[in-house]
């Protein structure tokens, strides 16, 4: 078994680095480093040596040009030793590394073209994340189910999960044929559902943003790159759940499984 090392990005508007790093540690990562994007851009740190890269939630560059767009520009145009930071991410992915993007981190991945990467086209934006149909930011808990046929390693074994969403730009939008391919190839590993029926939904507020087919997350063809709008790092303990004072829940929050799946995969396969 190899040592599991995770890098959690921080700075320039990233807000959730602490709880994301805490989740990695709870999940059994041996080393977890919080590293500022600034240190990556200055060449003082790199993704080398880490198997899991976490892009946490936040408001990169204030989301001023649309979510994560300005930071996507930074990553594409910052060169370190003849390689752009985007290429550093792509290299990490091609060499078998894992990337987890949560909320704003997912927005960054999709704008960089790291997801959905249909036909392994890394770095080519095929879909985007844009405004919720309501036009508003919202914080609310949603019910999710996983697609058991998805290659995604982060959602393995997940059946049902409740997590909070906290976003204004969480609607996955792409040309119709792309959305259909994402679904057919099981690259949308998590779906917003109606907890009463268990069926994926496009109905507000069960689906807070209006994404087609209820898709809440994307993965690439390998299942190692994963981005999701809900926040698994916000449900690590039962007291995070909105009904914990009225229901019997396991001590450990359901969101932790996303991280344990990743760390276990690293320990077993890398």
């Amino acid at each position: 078994m190899s040592k599991a090392r995770a890098i959690v990005l921080a700075g320039n508007g990233i807000n959730c680095e602490k709880e994301t790093a805490y989740a990695c540690r709870l999940a059994g990562a041996d080393d977890v480093d919080i590293v500022y994007l600034w240190d990556l851009a200055a060449g003082e740190a790199s993704l080398d040596g880490y198997q899991l890269v976490c892009c946490p939630g936040g408001f990169l560059d204030g989301d001023d040009l649309g979510s994560a767009r300005a930071s996507a520009i930074r990553l594409r145009h910052t060169q370190i030793n003849g390689q752009s930071l985007l290429e550093q991410f792509s290299t990490h992915a091609k060499q078998g590394g894992l990337v987890l993007g949560i909320c704003n981190g997912f927005q960054l991945m999709i704008k960089l073209g790291l997801l959905p990467a249909l036909d392994n086209q890394l770095g080519v934006p095929q879909a985007t994340l844009t405004w919720n149909n309501s036009g508003r930011f919202e914080d609310r808990w949603v019910a999710l189910k996983a697609d058991p046929e998805s290659p995604c390693i982060f959602t393995k074994g997940v059946e049902y999960m409740e997590l909070p969403v906290r976003h204004g730009e969480g609607q996955i939008v792409a040309p119709e044929e792309t959305m259909i391919q994402i679904r057919q190839r099981h690259q949308g590993p998590l779906m917003y559902i109606d907890p009463n029926t268990g069926a994926a939904t496009e109905e507000y507020p069960l689906n807070p943003n209006g994404t087609r087919f209820g898709i809440a997350a994307l993965t690439d063809t390998t299942g190692r790159l994963f981005g999701l709008m809900p926040h698994p790092e916000a449900f690590l303990h039962r007291t995070n759940h909105p009904r914990w004072t009225r229901e019997t829940l396991p001590e450990e929050g359901a969101g932790l499984q996303i991280f344990t799946n990743a760390i276990n995969y690293i320990k077993e396969n890398m």
Binding site: N15, C16, K18, E19, Y22, G57, R136, F137, E138, D139, R140, P164, R166, H231, E233, A234, L236, T239, N240, P242, R243, T245, R246
Partner: peptide, 18 residues
């Protein structure tokens, strides 16, 4: 709902409950 009331991961009693 338009305020993020659980970022940082330490939320125990939220503004809305029940």
């Amino acid at each position: 709902r338009q305020y993020d009331h659980e970022v940082q991961g330490g939320s125990v009693v939220k503004p809305l409950c029940g």
